[in-house]
C-alpha cells in the first residue's frame, strides 16, 4: 500500500514535471523559429543580378555563408564590406557566400552592390518565399551551413570582420 502510494505519487509528479519542463524549455530556451541550428538548410533557388539561378543544393561539399539583408538596414551595410573581403580569402578554401536581399527593387540592389563592389552572388527574394522558409526576423541574419547542408549556427545582428572570419573558418570543409 505504502509502496503503491509512493510510486503513484512519483509517476504523477514525473508526468507533470516533464510537461512543465518541455513547455518552459521549448518556450524560453529554444528560439521560437521554424528553423533551428542542426536542421538541414531548406533548399531554395533564386536568381542573381546577372540572371543566373543560384540553388543552395548545388553548393553541397562547400560551406555556405548565407546572409539575409536589405539596403536600408544599417548593420547589414556595415558588415557587407567585411563579408566581401573575407569571401575573397575563403572562396579558395571552399566557403561560398550567398547574400539574399529581402525583396527590394533590382535597381536599388544593383546600386548597393556596385557601391560596395560585392563579388559574391546577390539574389533577390522577390516573393518572400525564402524569407518564410528561413523565418527571417530581424535583419541581418546569417546562416552558417556546412558542407553537408546542415545549419551550424544562426547569427542575428551585425558582425565585425573578425566575426566574419571566425564564422567562415567554422564552415570550411
Amino acid at each position: 500500500m505504502k509502496e503503491k502510494r509512493f510510486w503513484l505519487r512519483t509517476v504523477i509528479l514525473a508526468i507533470m514535471l516533464a510537461a512543465i519542463g518541455y513547455t518552459i524549455y521549448s518556450n524560453v530556451f529554444v528560439e521560437k523559429k521554424a528553423i533551428q541550428v542542426g536542421d538541414s538548410a531548406p533548399d531554395f533557388v533564386l536568381t542573381d543580378l546577372n540572371g543566373n539561378n543560384i540553388q543552395l543544393s548545388d553548393y553541397r561539399g562547400k560551406g555556405v555563408f548565407l546572409n539575409f539583408w536589405g539596403t536600408w538596414c544599417k548593420p547589414c551595410e556595415k558588415e557587407m564590406p567585411y563579408i566581401n573581403s573575407q569571401y575573397n580569402v575563403y572562396k579558395n578554401k571552399g566557403v561560398e557566400v550567398i547574400a539574399v536581399n529581402v525583396g527590394e527593387a533590382k535597381v536599388t540592389v544593383q546600386t548597393f552592390v556596385d557601391r560596395f563592389q560585392l563579388t559574391f552572388p546577390v539574389v533577390i527574394d522577390q516573393q518572400d518565399q525564402v524569407m518564410n522558409a528561413y523565418d527571417i526576423n530581424p535583419l541581418p541574419t546569417t546562416f552558417l551551413i556546412d558542407k553537408d547542408g546542415k545549419i551550424v549556427d544562426i547569427i542575428t545582428g551585425t558582425m565585425t570582420e573578425e566575426d566574419v572570419k571566425k564564422h567562415m573558418e567554422r564552415i570550411k570543409p
Binding site: P42, D43, L46
Partner: peptide
C-alpha cells in the same frame, strides 16, 4: 503549390 517545395522557385 504542386510538386516539391523549393523556396524561391
Amino acid at each position: 503549390r504542386i510538386g516539391p517545395v523549393v523556396a524561391g522557385e
